[in-house]
Design a binder for these strands. Structure first.
Lengths: 206, 206
DNA sequence: ACCCGGCGGCTAACGCTGTTAGCTGAAGGC
DNA sequence: GCCTTCAGCTAACAGCGTTAGCCGCCGGGT
């Protein structure tokens, strides 16, 4: 673990990586220690996630969260500084989840189809948790508040699949874009999205 | 103009296009007639755009728009049904603008570097108008309210650059994702984004 | 045993948002 | 000259995140 991989969100300016076909399919970075919030905060986050996933982003109000917990909205501020802090907490949870999911997808993929497997896993997670995915993806969340290293670790599978930090960033961005457009239904009904994702995988499979 | 190209957002399920390297670099679809809103509505849209670009999305309030126009907020509803309708109007303007910009970029590109030129133009527009770009991109805008064909026409440059509807969709999504991540500063400072975009262009240059 | 501090609830309220209802003056058509 | 329509206005509502200030309860220290 002496040589850490370039983090996804900030590759080193000079790549020291060989551009050969031998990919670093083994995991490199260690999973960062997950944040362990106080019990009541964890309950609030769980309730918030529940509301977000079941009822949508518009329903995620402080008053609604309080209602679910049998509490009035202002009492939430005894545990959380702001709604943004709550969003950050949710992002932390989702980031750890999706990171684990993507790492496992790379672990289990056939060597020849890593990129396609990764894209498929990414898409699968986003479609399974659309509102949660939008939460830690869209909008500006205060990245400084996230556990250090978590974001890099979550993005590492793209580096494992491409073997190059810039291709990793590009593939991550591309997959993110495709998933976002799908979530927001910007493709007219009838589009064969499988073929679009296949085209994306093909472009990065070289 | 008898054979229209497959629209970007909904390619035909069976592609009738040759996958050769001869790209349809000429423009195919005609630019749809731009919507011509009543004069006062156009003034409101102009003021809204001004506020959005100069002061950010949070400042784009009905009261603020009224203030700029020397009007009270409720009076805006004599011209617009809702704030969503206003957002739709802005999206229409931006879509026409970016479409024209991208088409021209493809027009003027060297034959061997169309994809890179297109990506560069897309990135350039988004960076020049970040808040406007987010407006018609993020969030859910009622696509039914947009001028029919406008969105397809605006996306056509990606088809012109790739020659295949699915690669076009994938490239569009990928560029969109990369630009979004850049706008939301999800790359840590110090990242050489030019290289990331280059990697993206390279993947689609085949 | 008592006090005392803090935790975690509560109500009331503020300023902001989009939006509606209802009034009014001015302009234009018959 | 009247009457309709347009385009402004004020007042107000519900809902949002958030703050201030109050209070009961529970645990620890002396």
């Amino acid at each position: 673990m002496t040589s850490t991989p370039p983090p996804l969100s900030s590759p080193p300016l000079t790549s020291t990586l060989p551009l050969t076909s031998t990919l670093p399919l083994t995991r490199i970075a260690v999973r960062p220690e997950p944040a362990r919030p106080p019990a009541r905060v964890a309950e609030i986050l769980a309730a918030a996630r529940d509301i977000l996933e079941r009822e949508g982003a518009d329903a995620l109000t402080m008053r609604r969260i309080g209602e679910v917990l049998g509490i009035r909205a202002p009492s939430l501020y005894k545990h959380l500084a702001s709604k943004d802090a709550l969003a950050t907490g949710l992002a932390e949870v989702a980031l750890a989840e999706v990171g684990e999911y993507l790492h496992r997808a790379v672990d289990e993929a056939d060597a020849g189809a890593v990129v396609a497997a990764l894209i498929g896993a990414y898409r699968g997670y986003a479609l399974a948790h659309p509102n949660l995915y939008r939460m830690f993806t869209a909008g500006r969340l205060p990245r400084a508040a996230l556990s250090s290293g978590l974001e890099q670790w979550a993005g590492e599978p793209f580096y494992r699949a491409t073997g190059d930090p810039y291709r990793a960033q590009a593939l991550w961005a591309a997959t993110h874009g495709a998933v976002l457009l799908e979530l927001e239904e910007r493709y007219l009904p009838g589009s064969d999205l499988d073929r679009t994702y296949a085209a994306l995988a093909e472009a990065f499979a070289a």
